[in-house]
Computed example of a mutant assay.
Amino acid sequence: MKTTVIGLILFIAGMQLSFAQTSAADEEIIKLSKDKWEWMAEKNVDTLSKLFHEKAVFVHMGGAWGTEREIDVIKSGGIWYKKADIHEVSVNIVDNTAILLNRIDLLAVVGGNEVTNPFMVTEVYVKQGDSWKLTALSFTRLLTPQRPQ
């Protein structure tokens, strides 16, 4: 009985450690992504211009374009990213490249219409010097919303 209880405690402790395997770099990218959603909601194009790489690509349901157009779309309100409800986040870092996946429900105003869509969003960041630059942002619309468990 004592061995079983000790084994169970060790198993639970091991499970908690396996879920807490995020590095400082992972946490930095996760925070940067969350901040980006807030900056987009606030239409803070000055800060976003510093984050977006000049050659970044943005893939939406309605097309794909570069940094300059994305900044213009945000600034003009062509797409207003009002609120991103983030349900899941994962980060993979390979050398100086970070790939972040977000499963979100995005509340946005597009063409004057308020819409909510479930997306898997792929964000790619490249480390340049001491800072990360967003080089790709791609929205994949999910067929059905997957609510958090």
Results as ranks from 00 to 15, higher is better:
Arg103Asp: 07
Lys127Pro: 13
Asp85Thr: 09
Leu107Gly: 01
Leu100His: 07
Val115Leu: 15
Ile93Val: 08
Thr122Ser: 15
Ile86Lys: 08
Ala98Trp: 05
Val109Thr: 11
Gly129Glu: 08
Ile93Gln: 01
Ala98Glu: 00
Tyr125Cys: 03
Gln128Leu: 14
Met120Cys: 11
Ile86Asp: 03
Asp85Pro: 08
Asp85Asn: 11
Asn96Leu: 03
Val91Lys: 01
Asn92Leu: 08
Val110Ser: 02
Leu101Phe: 06
Glu114His: 10
Thr97Arg: 01
Ala98Lys: 04
Asn102Glu: 00
Tyr125Thr: 09
Asn96Met: 02
Val126Pro: 13
Ile104Pro: 04
Ile99Gln: 01
Val91Arg: 00
Phe119Cys: 12
Asp130Leu: 13
Lys127Ile: 09
Leu100Tyr: 03
Ile93Phe: 01
Lys127Thr: 10
Asp95Gln: 12
Thr97Leu: 07
Leu106Val: 06
Ile93Ala: 06
Ala108Met: 10
Thr116Ile: 02
Ile93Arg: 01
Ile99Lys: 05
Asn117Ala: 15
Val126His: 03
Ser90Glu: 02
Val91Asn: 02
Val115Cys: 10
Asp105Trp: 06
Thr116Lys: 15
Tyr81Asp: 00
Val110Phe: 13
Ser131His: 14
Gln128Val: 13
Thr116Val: 11
Leu100Arg: 08
Lys83Tyr: 10
Lys82Trp: 03
Leu106Ala: 11
Asp130Phe: 06
Ile86Asn: 00
Ile86Gly: 07
Ser90Cys: 04
Gln128Thr: 15
Asp130Cys: 12
Ile93Ser: 00
Leu107Pro: 06
Thr97Ala: 05
Asn117Ile: 14
Pro118Leu: 09
Val89Tyr: 05
Asn92Phe: 12
Asp85Trp: 02
Asn117Leu: 14
Leu107Arg: 14
Ile93Trp: 04
Val124Ala: 14
Glu114Phe: 02
Lys83Leu: 01
Thr97Pro: 02
Tyr81Trp: 05
Val110Lys: 04
Val121Met: 05
Asp130Thr: 14
Asp85Cys: 08
Ala108Pro: 01
Ile93Met: 03
Val89Leu: 12
Asp95Asn: 06
Ile104Ser: 07
Glu88Ile: 07
Met120His: 10
Val89Gly: 04
Leu106Ser: 03
Ile104Gln: 08
His87Ile: 07
Thr116Gln: 13
Glu88Asp: 07
Pro118Gln: 10
Gly111His: 05
Asp130Gly: 11
Asp105Pro: 07
Asp105Ser: 11
Val91Tyr: 07
Val91Trp: 02
Leu101Glu: 07
Thr97Asp: 09
Val126Ile: 15
Thr97Val: 12
Ile104Met: 03
His87Asp: 10
Val110Ala: 12
Ala108Thr: 04
Asp85Ala: 07
Leu106Phe: 05
Thr116Cys: 00
Ala98Asn: 01
Gln128Glu: 15
Tyr125His: 01
Gly112Lys: 05
His87Trp: 03
Lys127Arg: 14
Pro118Ala: 14
Asp130Val: 14
Lys127Gly: 11
Val115Tyr: 04
Asn113Phe: 13
Ile93Asn: 05
Tyr81Cys: 03
Val115Met: 15
Val94Met: 00
Val109Met: 10
Val109Leu: 10
Leu100Cys: 08
Asp130Met: 13
Val89Ser: 04
Leu107Tyr: 11
Asn102Val: 00
Ile104Gly: 01
Ile86Val: 02
Tyr81Asn: 00
Tyr81Gln: 05
Tyr81Val: 03
Val94Thr: 02
Thr116His: 08
Gly111Phe: 00
Glu123His: 13
Val89Asp: 09
Lys82Met: 03
Ala98Met: 06
Glu123Cys: 14
